[in-house]
Amino acid sequence: MEHMGFTAIDHNAYNSALNSINSMLKTVFFTSVLIYGIVIDSPVVSLFIILSMAFITVVIGRIKLRYYIRVMSIPALFIVLSIAAVLVNFSRSSTGLFTLSLGGVNIFVTDEGIKKAVCIVIRAFGAVSCMYGLALSTPMADIIEVFRKFRLPEVIIELMFLIYRFIFVLLAVVENMTRATEARNGYGSIRSSFYSFGSIGKNLLLYSFRKADFAYDAMESRGYDGKIAFYSEDRNIRLLEIVFFILYFVVMICLS
């Protein structure tokens, strides 16, 4: 994958078999399931969401299972650290299911704490799988187009499109800079890696100032007057998709 793997999700979204479905329908479907899962907050519904979203993304969308598991592990550090904080309690007097005494202070885990932690993890991964369902089936440009249909101010839409475009421009530059730095052993020691990182940060900012200048000149010479036109395709919504949408919600409501 190009750009140090940082555009891998977008790349997969373009290649997903679900990419051909109307982007408005996909966005509404995945976000409404996401919101429903969080509002209902029931482990059964969330488990159903985790399994069904994996099915939708991997089997129907034909995203590689290995890749799907890899993106699922991205929030792992956050979940491990924050669940530890929910689980572990400190007190001088009370104890719980497992207790560790350290110099008069009891560090303990309660039965209830474990139940709560399990519920949070399941709900969080249910929500995460909805987000991945959207991210791995709808390219960013289509999502921005959906925002436009929801009448977000035009300045914000333009800003989003431009940022999206410039991310790829800058990533290509960073890739070259990083490779050049590595080739010169720029990350050899902590001292030099700080220096190298700072230099890349500085040069990248300078580069982006200049590039913004060039982009403006180029746009102005092509008649830019404050409105940027973007290409978008409208895809038809099929009956089968609506039936699936309704059935999915019927199953979720029955489970909760």
């Binding site: 940022i163 475009r165 421009v169 990248l204 100032f209």
Partner: peptide, 10 residues
């Protein structure tokens, strides 16, 4: 606008 977009991307 372009400068702001660049800063966002940055």
């Amino acid at each position: 606008l372009l400068l702001l977009a660049m800063v966002g991307a940055y």
